[in-house]
């Protein structure tokens, strides 16, 4: 899917967003039920001191050699179950639905942002090959991980009823294996991105204005100037870096259970992992929207490396001025087969 097909693309995204919102709906009452029933785990018999101590996780001695075998009652498990099956799942679904819905609304409201004045036919280099590879490496991983990860979190409610336990079990097994093996590759991308791109993403005064003007997306008539990266991208970048690291660290904690971490550590890691992954995912929806359907001419930079001069002027005026000033690389004419056709189909 290197070549964007805006025509069918937007419909797909919209459809996906709506399905998500609809599917998440049944989970909502469940979530409220969990949140609204705090006493569900309080069953302590006050007369029994031993029992009480154990409920508090007092550890004993045992001949069974396994981590935490000495803990008789791991009450934290109750809390974990409550969080995962409750708020995490519910709010995660809300959030993703909101992201998808938001994108859909923006699209309805604003439509695709065209290159002002059409394509110039001349392009400038924006992403060199290694950077593009890095982006897609990370992006594809992220998407696979998201899909497989979400299958674990929501598959039982969403997919299982459609296909039955056996088929879903097989699928989930595959998803888990994929997720667990690909997961550790993800931080590589994140770290490289952080190393290579951080400089471009340092906040600047101009970002404030960009933000104030809604990034040129919310309001039709504004075209805030931006440097190499605009504030929105910068925000995304830092979300990717910090979110990615969080997801990766927690992911690794979950992925290598033999490192001596306790069950409680893993429980916490799991919640943080899934929450931050879903948090990222919401933004990723936005990012992807902007990179594809939302903005004409953006994707080609990440696909072929070069962007139309008009696009550059429109979206990254300061950057464009910077690179063309004093001996910067000359824009070239778009060659055959390179870049988007000048006029939309």
């Amino acid at each position: 899917m290197m070549r964007a097909r805006p025509g069918c693309g937007w419909r797909t995204v919209l459809a996906a967003a709506l399905t998500m919102a609809v599917l998440a709906a049944p989970l909502i009452p469940q979530g409220w039920a969990y949140l609204g029933d705090p006493k569900s785990t309080q069953r302590i018999d006050p007369t029994n001191r031993l029992w009480r101590e154990l409920r508090q996780g007092a550890a004993g001695q045992t001949q069974v050699q396994a981590p935490e075998a000495g803990v008789l009652i791991a009450s934290a498990g109750e809390e974990w179950r409550r969080l995962r099956n409750g708020p995490l799942r519910t709010w995660g679904a809300y959030w993703l639905a909101a992201a998808a819905g938001g994108v859909a609304l923006i699209f309805l409201w604003r439509g695709r942002i065209r290159i002002e004045g059409g394509r110039s036919g001349r392009t400038v280099e924006r992403w060199r090959l290694p950077h593009r590879v890095l982006h897609w490496y990370t992006a594809v991983l992220f998407l696979i991980l998201a899909l497989t990860g979400l299958s674990l979190l929501y598959g039982r409610a969403v997919v299982l009823p459609l296909f039955g336990k056996e088929v879903f079990g097989l699928y989930a097994q595959g998803a888990k294996v994929l997720h667990n093996y690909l997961g550790p590759l993800f931080p590589v991308g994140v770290i490289l991105m952080a190393a290579l791109w951080a400089r471009n993403n340092l906040p600047a005064r101009v970002d404030l204005r960009w933000l104030a003007e809604g990034g040129g997306i919310l309001f039709r008539d504004r075209h805030p100037p931006a440097g190499n990266m605009n504030a929105g991208e910068k925000l995304w970048f830092w979300i990717v870096v910090f979110g990615g690291l969080t997801v990766s660290v927690t992911g690794i904690i979950l992925d290598f259970p033999g490192l001596g971490q306790t069950r409680e550590t893993m429980q916490t890691a799991q919640i943080v992992h899934a929450a931050s992954a879903i948090f990222m995912l919401g933004f990723a929806v936005g990012h992807i929207y902007i990179g594809t359907l939302g903005t004409e001419g953006a994707l080609e930079g990440m696909v072929h490396g070069r962007v139309d001069v008009n696009w550059a002027r429109q979206h990254h005026l300061l950057w464009y001025e910077e690179i063309t000033r004093g001996g910067g690389p000359e824009p070239e004419a778009a060659g055959e087969g390179e870049g988007e056709p000048a006029a939309g189909a």
Binding site: E68, A69, V71, L72, I73, A74, S75, G77, E78, W80, R81, R84, L152, G169, A172, Q173, K176, P257, R263, M266, Q267, Q270
Partner: peptide, 14 residues
Amino acid sequence: CIGCGYCFFACPFG
């Protein structure tokens, strides 16, 4: 079973 370990996380009795 996919061996995810979630039942172990959740089980009060290990």
